[in-house]
Design a protein around this nucleic acid. Sequence first.
DNA 1: TTTTTGTATTCTGCATGCAAAGTTTATAGG
DNA 2: CCTATAAACTTTGCATGCAGAATACAAAAA
Lengths: 234, 234
Amino acid sequence: MLTDSPSSLAASAPIARRPLHEAAIDRLRDLIVQGELLPGSRLNERVLAGQLGISRTPLREAFKLLATEGLVELLPNRGAIVAHLDPERIRQTLAVMGALEALIGELACKQAPEAAIAEIQALHFEMRAAHARRDLAAYFRYNQAIHLNLAEAAGNAVLALTYRQLNANVRRVRYMANLSPERWDAAVREHDAILAALSARDGTRLKALLSDHLAQKTASVLAALAERRIMAAA
Amino acid sequence: MLTDSPSSLAASAPIARRPLHEAAIDRLRDLIVQGELLPGSRLNERVLAGQLGISRTPLREAFKLLATEGLVELLPNRGAIVAHLDPERIRQTLAVMGALEALIGELACKQAPEAAIAEIQALHFEMRAAHARRDLAAYFRYNQAIHLNLAEAAGNAVLALTYRQLNANVRRVRYMANLSPERWDAAVREHDAILAALSARDGTRLKALLSDHLAQKTASVLAALAERRIMAAA
DNA sequence: TTTTTGTATTCTGCATGCAAAGTTTATAGG
DNA sequence: CCTATAAACTTTGCATGCAGAATACAAAAA
């Protein structure tokens, strides 16, 4: 499933129907993650509230939320800006994600339902298709979906949620930095191996593969940042 | 209970030159973590705002924040309640913390400054002192401080922050559930071994010890929950 | 007595007003 | 022409008012 689960921990509560304005907040999150709002951009309450069609109060609540996710920075008495992409912070985030992926791989192999693995397999083929068509946007979507579904498949909601939140920040870089063709091909091969290990429920091998995959991803992401391919607002 | 002594709250909120309301929000977090507000308690906006000496708007922002930390649950159109202590959720949280502690142990041994290790060692002796005096409250404080300092010593801010947030929920259980004398003594011995491994910068051993320590802690916490030693509001 | 339905009350969620902090612009002095 | 300073403007942070949802209560029906 490609639909982004937008929720924070709060959303795990028994919710029948979400407040109307959370849609607007999710839209703001997407604007930041997809790079339409550049790092460093000031987020004027009145203007942004107008653009999103909500009032300042729920928007302010959204700022606080997005700040905990590391997507915006709150400057006392000077409002909010889109959080900068600090390479060191990204590196640290990826290190934590590595620790989580190790657990994810272990748990997923041990206790993921067959249906979940089948779905991930399906997403993998979709991703292969996107790669064959050189459709980078679709590739990214399926890639994300695979990793998030894998996190879900581990059967630990806290683990999946934590992983997702950390991922949001890294995702911003991916959206802004294209991969080199070689790296793209290599990433696909890595995913092939990952899927094979998952299907075989070989936890030890999956952990190693995920760790290697993340190391490559880290290098790629940090290289993109170092090359200043990532733009920031003045 | 909060409702029993509303005046103490008002008195403990000193009027700052600039009404910085984050102090009030921290106070609310403490009330939840320390169990003065029982799981399941409804958090009436107007009442609570009055007790904390702030207005509803910043309090609502606090609710959203605490929801991401898993300390309150937001029920659409029905406000906020203190989050329930779901044993399965606590178990999942502890599993994630285990993965993080493995990384913490590894990084701390590899790159913690000597001063940080010395400080942890000092806290450890303070904790031993509290244990010798059977001062449970002080013991918990030093125990927390040790684990949090260890997380900081790993030199990864994202790691430390993530660990701290997950820890908040587990801490609530510790505050409410006393340890058995045997478990208490065993925990202290485990800490002795942990400190020894850290001082020797033996990452492999530290990881194993932390893992074992957490497993014991998990058993103890879940036992407390199972024995219904943890109270919840109706 | 128990269940149901209509009504009153309470509470949340959002919009908006206001004071203070911050920013920009204009002006005077060097 | 450049710098310093003050006035005007902008924006945030918080308080509060209002509409609608949810709950509690009461009376009527089974």
